[in-house]
Design a protein around this nucleic acid. Structure first.
Ligand SMILES: [Mn+2]
Ligand SMILES: [Mn+2]
Ligand SMILES: [Zn+2]
Ligand SMILES: [Zn+2]
Lengths: 158, 158
DNA sequence: TGCTAATTCGCATGAGTTGCAGATTGGGTG
DNA sequence: CACCCAATCTGCAACTCATGCGAATTAGCA
C-alpha cells in the first residue's frame, strides 16, 4: 500500500484537563500530590506521545528531585484509570498517550515521530483469517515518512 | 468497532523453506551451521509467532547446549535479510514471524494467542490526520477474544 | 491539630536483549 | 585431503527499561 494521509474528517479528541484528573483521583480515594499535579499539566494536550524518561526530564526542570519512580507510578495509575493509553513501538521504551480518543498512529521511519491519525469506517474492511475471532478493537500503525522527512528525501541536496 | 473475522479471501503465505534459507545465507557469505539449520527448521511454517526464549527451549531439546545468544543472533540475521518479521506486543518479549507475507494480526485478550489476519483493500480506508505523511505500510492489530476463549465466556459455567 | 493510609523516593531487583572475547568450525583453497 | 581463517558459537558481563520494596514523608479527613 502507499497512500497520502490528508486532512479533513471529524476528530473528536478526548483529553482530560488537570482539574478533571484531580477530581478523578480524589473520587477513587487517591491523593493529589504536587508531583501528580505537575504530571497532569505536562500531559494535558501533549501531542508528543512522550516516554516516561521524557516526562521525567521535563518534570525535573520544574520540580528538581522528583523521582522517575513516581513518574512511572502516576503514569501507571492514569493508564489503569483509562485516562492514558500505553503505546508500544519498535525502538525502546513505552510511550504514553493522553489522547484517549479512538485513534491510530503514523510513525516516521526516519525521525521516529508519532502522529495521530483518525480512521473512519474501519468496520468496512474485508478481513480474512482466523475464523471465530471476535474483534473488539483495532489498532493501526502506518509507517513511512512524515511531511518534513518526505521533503528532505525529495531534494537531491540532502 | 466490533466485527467477526471470517474465513475466505486469498491468503498468499510467503515462508522460506530451510533449503531456501540455506541458499540465501551462503549467497551473502554467511555460514550455515547446524544451529542455524535447526532454527530454519523450527521456524518453517511455524504459526505460533514464537519468542526467542520459546525457540531456544525447543531447540535445546534437539540440540542440548545450543546457546540463547546464538538463537538471538540467527533471528536478527534473518530479520536483517527480510526473511523474518519482528513483532512487538504488550506483555514482554519480542515475537518473530516467519510469515513475511503482507498480513496483520489478531491477539486474544484472554489467552494472548496471536493469529494471522489478511486484510483486503486497506487503501480504501478513510484516514484523516497529519497532512503530508506518506504512508508506505500499515500494520493492524485486532484485539478481542479468539474462538476458543469466546466460547468459554458465553457459557455461564466457566 | 493529629492521625493514618497513601505516596514518594532511592535503591535493589528483574526481564529481555546485546556486547565482548576466547574457543571452535564451515567451507573455500592448494 | 589437509590447511587456513573469517565467521560463528558460547558464556558471561553489561545494558536498558521497568517494577518491588521499605523507611521517611505527606494529603486529606476527623
Ligand atoms: Mn496518539
Ligand atoms: Mn503473522
Ligand atoms: Zn520524519
Ligand atoms: Zn484466546
Amino acid at each position: 500500500m502507499s497512500c497520502r494521509l490528508g486532512g479533513g474528517g471529524i476528530t473528536v479528541v478526548v483529553v482530560r484537563t488537570p482539574t478533571e484528573l484531580t477530581t478523578a483521583f480524589r473520587e477513587r480515594g487517591l491523593k493529589v500530590t504536587p508531583q501528580r499535579q505537575l504530571l497532569f499539566r505536562l500531559l494535558h494536550a501533549n501531542p508528543t506521545h512522550p516516554t516516561a524518561e521524557a516526562l521525567f526530564a521535563t518534570a525535573s526542570e520544574q520540580m528538581p528531585g522528583i523521582s522517575l519512580r513516581t513518574v512511572y507510578q502516576t503514569l501507571n495509575d492514569l493508564a489503569a484509570m483509562g485516562e492514558l493509553r500505553v503505546l508500544l513501538f519498535a525502538g525502546g521504551s513505552t510511550r504514553f498517550d493522553p489522547n484517549v480518543s479512538d485513534h491510530h498512529h503514523a510513525q516516521c521511519d526516519r525521525c521516529g515521530e508519532l502522529h495521530d491519525v483518525y480512521v473512519d469506517r474501519l468496520e468496512a474492511l474485508t478481513v480474512a483469517g482466523f475464523d471465530g475471532f471476535v474483534a473488539e478493537r483495532a489498532s493501526i500503525v502506518f509507517s513511512g515518512l512524515c511531511a518534513a522527512c518526505s521533503k528532505l528525501s525529495n531534494h537531491p541536496n540532502q
